[in-house]
Design a protein around this nucleic acid. Sequence first.
DNA 1: GTGAAAGCGCTAACAT
DNA 2: ATGTTAGCGCTTTCAC
Lengths: 348, 348
Amino acid sequence: MARKPPTMRDVAIRAGVSPATVSNVLGHRKPVDPVLADRVRQAARDLNYQVDRAASQLRSGRAHVVGVLVPSLENPFFTALIAGIEQAAQEDGYDIIVASSHDSEAVETARMAALLSWRPAGLVIVPATDRFAGGEIIQNSQVPYVVVDRVSGQTAADTVTMDNRSAAAMAARHLLSLGHARALVVASTLELANIRARCRGICETFREAGVAEPEVLEIGMSFGEVGERVERWIADHGRPTSVIALTNYATMGVIAALRRLGLSVPNTVSLIGFDDYTWMQVSSPSITAVAQPVRQMATAAWSALSARIAGEEAPATGTELPCKLEIRQSTRAIGPSLLSENAPAAVS
Amino acid sequence: MARKPPTMRDVAIRAGVSPATVSNVLGHRKPVDPVLADRVRQAARDLNYQVDRAASQLRSGRAHVVGVLVPSLENPFFTALIAGIEQAAQEDGYDIIVASSHDSEAVETARMAALLSWRPAGLVIVPATDRFAGGEIIQNSQVPYVVVDRVSGQTAADTVTMDNRSAAAMAARHLLSLGHARALVVASTLELANIRARCRGICETFREAGVAEPEVLEIGMSFGEVGERVERWIADHGRPTSVIALTNYATMGVIAALRRLGLSVPNTVSLIGFDDYTWMQVSSPSITAVAQPVRQMATAAWSALSARIAGEEAPATGTELPCKLEIRQSTRAIGPSLLSENAPAAVS
DNA sequence: GTGAAAGCGCTAACAT
DNA sequence: ATGTTAGCGCTTTCAC
């Protein structure tokens, strides 16, 4: 027992050729006599042979693996991203090593070092914070990488993100078109540039419409707290006619809080969420939401990365994908549109 | 540019020692003079050195990576499982390579071969089907593996799953205790042993209570169809007083269907879902659900696998974890309990 | 078109 | 306790 897996040498012997030829056949590297090639393939099949990727990578210097580092594997947005990347990568013959930074810069640095020790062809990273602790270490490792979703400041790397400002503006215009002058923005944390961009988009849009900017409530990442904080805020400040929740946890927290306060959606308060999930369709009322183009973000990230892996030298690209506003039952008109003519209510 | 990463030799030279000593220091392998050890660690830090895992693994024959293969990365149950495994594995110094079989046996076989080509220390697998296409290929690769969630027939491998029969029985007892004699069971597919076990648990419990067995509706994996099929069934068969949905997609589909039919939950129909997600708490009504112990499944899978990696030779273990019934608002009493005294309504 | 031989970066025997 | 050496399985010159 504990029989070792067959090596290329085993295949070579069985096929009556040299290891080099086996390598050439299996790696489609050099033209090989069809007869020999067939013998090789047959021998490989017989022995159930699979190239040892560690050895292959060590010798060739080329790795067919990329690392993917996200802040959390509990968040469906990140796992959806991983799903997309896995698919795209797999189609190009790459495997993915997945790691979570658990929203911690320290862990992020450690996990990144671990990923780099595989000498991967590239890395896809959703930073834990705007500071992106790993920038330096990865920088001088010479491994190409793409920063996704939480893009801030200027990275040397390619970036892929949603157009957060426009997305938020779209949500804001939708509310304004329904006559909402008083909105509450519920954010996870303002430490993240993408969340700040969403706030900015909303505030700008309200200002441009000549309406007072909405207040922004920062409630942290944990679902439990959200409800309480929102309840307290409303107790202190009076109720808004509408709420924009900037993340999925915020959305759920707001729903819970409004229910506890006995505020009906959309009759008393209109609600827009960020991130679109299936449950928002079956919820009653169904939830109007800004759908992030997760799938496109994944493919964009992969295509940027594969270009770099292929040796592309062009300056870093910054992809900003548009999003879509899914209008459902949680938003309701309470008066005439507050939008001027030339600002459309919604753009897809 | 494209400077190569430092090697152990570079570190050795800088620290003025031999590569072997560097290896011993960094790998905590053999006792080394503290002074030299410090010099080595310093040099490694200076150069930003990280051992090359491919080379290390090639030489030592020990890999610090495990493959994880799931049917889908879109399903939150599987991604939660991955989150748990990533955490446990990471704590033991292992990385995970993640792959999806996209619910296809053919893809499963291919992805498994790819995973095995890393010569991983082990594999965690949630099979695409009960047939588990990869059983043979992995079997003679000698790599230890654990089968999780979709456990069927007798595998030679360790298995970890929820006690599906008992879980379903618990849900059934809850309904019976509320006086429901007519239940509809909505299953994704009866091709999966774990789904069949859930059906069995429900039917047995009803039979034991002297109540007619509920009918089982099989609706496939896609969310879209679920609603229609359920609507049609109810149109044809009349409405049940209660529904048990055996997967999360089934749950959402049922909610949508009942709403379209104008059947109020829980006033007209009571509903129990399988898998517990946050949205079920904020949904109105909140959804009574069987919570799977995903986290424990992940840790159980990891501990079984690490034992095998460590060389454990004992016969395969079959772990069956208990689940919990989260009673919320979607289930309501419509009459006296149909349960006999000695059958408790719910067990945690 | 094919094979022989070297060597990727590391670790395990062995020698000191 | 440290260094020397060999070789893991593969790919890549470089001969032929």
